[in-house]
């Protein structure tokens, strides 16, 4: 596990080399519309970040994707908890979860657009991306719990809240955490894709759409960079707070 983590680590030198390759490539091609240079992207970004519209678009998209993500997490955890205990619920939900997982996100986006306004489209799409992942991971986490610890809890007649705090949380956390990490990346990608199709006013998706329509490649790259930064930052902050919160719960007296 350590070795695979080590292999996945991004080295600064490698990033710099790729940036140089990108810069050389854009100079050779010589057409900004086909491949904008990294320097131009940074210049465009520095102009964007001082505008009100830039932050307004980020706020609009972030709030909706976050809402979709959190509702997916809450519903996923609750239904996984019930599903892990009640076989009937588990069997009932399985076709729904598998269907959501299998349907292409573009089909969902078009279908949801028929039902609701484009303004809140990314909330629903993010939810649909997050819910099945969290549900499956948490359910598997509960079903794969160490039975010997559960027997110990039975022998000592530990109340449900003590079991949740000491046993369930520590046993299910790795599954939940892995699910959140995967879902966070997906909900950002799918949420922005939904905005590009639905074009809600003042969203990141609308900016990407406009960049496409006006062949404004520097804007396209600048907004893409913004999406990557927010997505990575959000994932890091969320997982940091999650682990800190769990640590506090486990060590609470």
């Amino acid at each position: 596990m350590n070795s695979s983590k080590h292999n996945r680590k991004i080295k600064l030198w490698a990033v710099l080399v790729w940036l140089v390759i990108w810069q050389i490539g854009s100079v050779i091609i010589g057409q900004e519309i086909l491949l904008v240079s990294p320097v131009q992207v940074l210049i465009r970004l520095s102009r964007l970040i001082i505008t009100y519209e830039f932050w307004h678009s980020i706020g609009f998209s972030f709030a909706r994707i976050l809402l979709g993500f959190l509702s997916g997490v809450i519903f996923g955890v609750l239904l996984a908890g019930i599903g892990a205990r009640v076989k009937l619920v588990r069997e009932f939900l399985e076709p729904l979860v598998q269907t959501i997982k299998s349907i292409p996100v573009a089909s969902f986006i078009i279908l949801i657009l028929v039902w609701i306004s484009s303004k809140n489209l990314s909330v629903v799409i993010s939810f649909l991306m997050v819910f099945p992942i969290i549900f499956t991971n948490v359910r598997d986490g509960i079903l794969n719990m160490d039975t010997k610890l559960l027997e110990m809890a039975d022998v000592f007649h530990l109340p449900l809240k003590v079991r949740i705090r000491y046993i369930y949380v520590s046993q299910v956390l790795p599954f939940f955490s892995a699910g959140c990490s995967l879902a966070l990346g997906l909900c950002w990608k799918a949420g922005i894709a939904a905005e590009v199709i639905g074009i809600p006013k003042d969203s990141i998706g609308e900016n990407l759409y406009n960049a496409k329509v006006y062949l404004n490649t520097p804007d396209l790259f600048a907004w893409t960079l913004v999406i990557i930064i927010i997505s990575v930052l959000f994932e890091k902050i969320f997982l940091f707070l999650l682990h800190k919160g769990v640590g506090k719960i486990e060590h609470m007296k």
Binding site: K148, L149, E151, M152, V155, F156, H157, L158, V162, Y166, I167, S170, E250, H251, K253
Partner: peptide, 27 residues
């Protein structure tokens, strides 16, 4: 009857401290 046990395996929560493991069964 209320029962207590030392199992053949320790059955402790590996991430927690000694006090937390004991406190868990006697709040």
């Amino acid at each position: 009857k209320k029962i207590s046990a030392v199992f053949q395996e320790d059955r402790l929560l590996e991430n927690l401290s000694i006090i937390a493991n004991i406190h868990m069964v006697c709040q």
